[in-house]
Design a protein around this nucleic acid. Structure first.
Lengths: 362, 362
DNA sequence: TTGTACGCGTTATCAT
DNA sequence: ATGATAACGCGTACAA
């Protein structure tokens, strides 16, 4: 089919047969468990028990019922089920939509959560961070989900107090300053920082220059920002090497400014470079200056494996593992839904992946 | 609070008072409309009618009821409401999680949809494209939402047939080859292509080189890819200028290969450049070669305003306007929920924004 | 203008 | 091992 001929107007008129077949009370209504019961020749409660497995059913009736379900393509009405069962089979996910910088990371989180949820017949309600703590209260009072996952926690997050009040399980990805009574899961940024600093220190860098987060991002109060920084600095001090930390925006200009500030004279020694940005811009800027990581200088990065391997010179890096974090959060969430689990902090291990952007001895 | 001292183990133990206060039947259950009725001294149905406005209520009782609602912080139980009212106040959103390239665009779509939904007291159920057509059938049979928005439609999309079967409104962002009976909304990529080609033709470029989508992306069968390409080529032919189209992956190497192939000799004339990628990499590669758009050559781009303005030399561009498309989709969706609206194609206007990356005459 | 009563489709508690 | 039946909380037709 060619589309050329249909672009006459910007708002094209009616197309196809739907004008004649108005949407509405077309087709039959969705089958109910009552229908299944009738077809299978059993009572409605038996259908329910076959589905839930909450009481022994003879193999014969079980098959009959399952066949009827299959034949009618029956699926339980979510509202009715929630009303009677006090369970929605839905998890809320509070998405921090601001900041396009981390969009691909957020998508990784969200996808993993959605897929994991479906794997246990759960669905995901997408909530916006803009609703704040009130949003959490709302979904609980309306009984729209059984639990909530909240991403991008700030040190002074107002949702922490709300989470403590709620009767519904809440899992924080990230952590507020005071996490008493909260279920928090996060990547081990502390160890990550140490691994990266160590990697540069081990090859004899006399100095480390860190390209940190933009001021905007620091201003948000995301908890892992100071966590990473503090530990990087502490480890550098332990190793007896200087560390220069420069926050810069996630732009071409930001990266250039950083390099201008930290690179030594041409031909001279360069400091070890550590970036918490996507290595994309930094890599391009270095290339432009004719500097190749692993040959002319040493570079390590805090970035996902996907980001690292998309680079011309993939950097040695620590990945914050969004997918692992999500999976762990979901499995914890399901445990919480089944029984009581003490509030605690769970950290996902940091690991360094070497990719040859550091000049290793030997 | 310092976190240093708590990193002893990777999985830290219980923290805070929640160990003593197990989650469970704490607090009271959410108030019901019956509770509101009792407090307000009216019948339950009156409460319902006050909320829906579906019958006249005396100002006095209305106030009393609203006060009771406020006092109890009552919110209607979503399951019960859906069961009785045959309406969920939820819209499904099918998110195409694959391809990290367009993550920031997807987030823009999703955020706009979520915010618009909340503006009318709707929520958003996040569905994965991985469920395919069956996912649409599922949410309808379970009565989990009142309508669905599907993004990233391919020319031969299997969800099109399903959408025609469903009783629930479905809005496609993008369009399949045969859109009879479907409600589709999309950006006017055809006009966008023409505007971009014209812009280069108008300043006398003897030739245009297009940096197209990666083969991966082309292979997905996203409908706007051939739409854009066909119209760009046709318009170039109309204008009597040559157009070279080169598909390349969204990487540094892809961009370099493109430039190597199309740029003229040093000092010689360069073709007008048109990129459908984010202009980020192309801009960097040009800069590295000492070429400044608007001074040494002409460059136009198909990218969002945010992407354009994040560049050192913001390119003249046509934005696919993800937010406008989302808003329009939602307003159309609400119309569909209120009554019958004929199936049609709605296109969002293409506009060119000049930013000085093209050497204009005069 | 307001109250009464039934039904929505499940789950879960009684019986048998 | 299975069948009646009572909630669950809200919307709405019917009565008053």
């Amino acid at each position: 089919m060619r589309i050329d001929d249909e672009r006459a107007g910007v708002a094209t008129g009616p197309v196809g047969p739907s004008v004649a077949a108005p949407r509405g009370r077309r087709g039959r209504p969705a089958p109910t468990s009552k229908d299944v019961a009738r077809v299978a020749g059993v009572s409605q409660s038996t259908v329910s028990y076959v589905m839930s497995g909450k009481r022994p059913i003879s193999e014969r009736t079980r098959r009959t019922v399952l066949e009827a379900i299959d034949q009618l393509t029956y699926e339980p009405n979510a509202g009715a089920r929630a009303l009677a069962g006090h369970r929605t089979n839905v998890v809320g996910l509070v998405v921090p939509f601001h900041n396009p910088e981390t969009a691909s990371g957020l998508m990784a989180f969200a996808e993993e959560i959605a897929v994991t949820a479906r794997g246990r017949d759960y669905d995901v309600l997408m909530l916006t961070a803009a609703e704040g703590p009130a949003g959490l209260a709302r979904v609980q009072r309306r009984a729209m989900c059984d639990a909530v996952i909240v991403m991008e926690i700030t040190t002074d997050d107002p949702r922490a107090a709300m989470a403590r009040e709620l009767e519904m399980p809440v899992i924080f990805i990230g952590m507020p300053g005071d996490r008493a009574g909260l279920h928090c899961i996060d990547f081990d940024f502390e160890t990550g920082a140490e691994l990266l600093v160590d990697e540069l220190a081990d090859v004899g860098c006399p100095e480390i220059a860190v390209l940190g987060w933009s001021q905007d991002r620091v201003g948000l109060g995301i908890n892992y920002v100071p966590r990473f920084r503090t530990h990087a600095q502490a480890r550098a001090a332990d190793r007896g090497i200087a560390l220069r930390w420069i926050d810069a925006p996630h732009t071409r200009a930001g990266v250039e400014g950083f390099l201008d500030a930290v690179l030594g004279p041409d031909g001279g020694p360069h400091p070890g470079l550590l970036t918490v940005h996507s290595p994309h811009d930094l890599g391009a800027a270095l290339q432009q200056r004719g500097l190749v990581p692993g040959r002319d200088l040493d570079l390590v990065s805090l970035c996902t494996d996907v980001e690292a391997e998309g680079q011309p010179v993939p950097p040695t890096a620590v990945s914050p593992q969004p997918r692992d974090v999500s999976r762990l959060a979901m499995s914890w969430l399901f445990d919480l839904l089944e029984g009581d689990v003490p509030a605690e902090l769970r950290l996902v291990d940091a690991r360094l992946t070497r990719r040859g952007s550091v000049r290793r001895a030997g």
